[in-house]
């Protein structure tokens, strides 16, 4: 069974939802579009969840999320593991935090009640579990209280978060904007300031637009050249080639060559997935996931690329018309 492959989604998150009415009511879900999903939970759009449909608990807010999943499948795996930490096989039994002590009527173990602390602990645990440890995930917080809980968990945890793995984890409030807004504003302040929290998350491919465009150029004009790693000639359409992400650098190489390059030899036995490294051509830092995003977009998401790059042309046209208008206007 071959699933029709889709490019890596620009954003796929697993989020933690908390009721503003009752801070003890929590919900874990996943979505590629957090603001839309939040509206659904709150009833402003159709398609919410049963567990968040109680009007007494609405409105809900997203207090934390993990982003960077490379596919819906991956996110759902993580989400399930986080929702069922008592069952998940990704967690070694010794390290399991949430243990079920009762059984339900159908024989399944009962899920222990989750609190913010338990969720945070489990996130911490799951991020370090071998199954998920090499995923290019990031952790975002949108609420200072929750962040405090996280910090406590981190402090109390036996292992440091993602130790020795050069994986970026933003466990501050997500990227710069929300961090600043959190610190500067009260939580009670209007949470809907234009680009705050989940609204600031890039839900589409725009951040990598340039990269994608570059890739399109390079491959469109068959400028790959030789593999930057093995120096083999790469026939244009015959292989999975990855492109360096840095601006201006057009280092292209075989995918496997790249991976070989980016994984230090000592880790080769343990893992297949590289995480980051430097481009052999331009010596700039690169993230594996970025490259993969572009690669998958290029190979599987041509429509998305078109859509992404199309907008560029419209302003151009407008600019043209403007220019022509100006030209005509100023005789």
């Amino acid at each position: 069974m071959t699933v029709l492959a889709r490019p890596i989604p620009p954003l796929y998150t697993v989020y933690v939802l908390r009721s503003t009415v009752n801070h003890a009511c929590l919900y874990i879900g996943s979505t590629p579009n957090p603001p839309r999903r939040l509206k659904q939970h709150n009833g402003e759009a159709k398609g919410g969840a049963v567990r968040t449909s109680r009007s007494k608990l609405r409105p809900w807010e997203m207090v934390a999320l993990v982003s960077g999943f490379t596919s819906a499948v991956a996110a759902l795996k993580f989400e399930w593991a986080l929702t069922n930490p008592h069952l998940s096989m990704h967690i070694p039994s010794q390290e399991r935090i949430s243990i079920s002590t009762q059984r339900k009527r159908n024989g399944m173990p009962k899920r222990p009640r989750s609190s913010m602390t338990s969720i945070m602990s489990n996130i911490h645990l799951l991020l370090g579990v071998p199954s998920f440890s090499r995923w290019p995930l990031r952790l975002h917080f949108f609420n200072a209280d929750v962040h405090k809980v996280w910090e406590k968990t981190k402090a109390a945890a036996k292992e440091p978060l993602r130790p020795n793995l050069p994986v970026i984890t933003d466990f501050g409030p997500s990227t710069t904007t929300s961090a600043r807004t959190l610190e500067s504003e009260d939580e009670g302040d209007a949470p809907k300031s234009p680009s705050w929290g989940i609204n600031a998350l890039p839900v589409d491919y725009v951040p990598i637009k340039d990269y994608v465009a570059k890739g399109r150029e390079v491959f469109g004009f068959e400028r790959e050249g030789h593999c930057v790693v093995c120096r083999e000639h790469m026939p244009p359409g015959e292989g999975v080639y990855a492109l360096c992400a840095n601006d201006g650098c057009e280092g292209v190489g075989h995918l496997s060559c790249w991976s070989r390059h980016l994984i230090p030899p000592r880790e080769r036995q343990d893992s297949l997935l590289p995480v980051d490294g430097t481009c052999p051509k331009c010596s700039g830092k690169i993230q594996w996931v970025d490259m993969m995003k572009e690669l998958t977009l290029r190979t599987r998401g041509s429509k998305e690329v078109d859509r992404l790059l199309k907008k560029k042309r419209v302003p151009k046209a407008k600019a043209k018309t403007k220019a022509t208008a100006e030209a005509t206007a100023t005789p």
Binding site: S71, A74, S256, W258, M292
Partner: peptide, 9 residues
């Protein structure tokens, strides 16, 4: 291999 590298499920 490539699939795994590309994060394909």
């Amino acid at each position: 291999h490539e699939k795994m590298l590309m994060y394909d499920p």
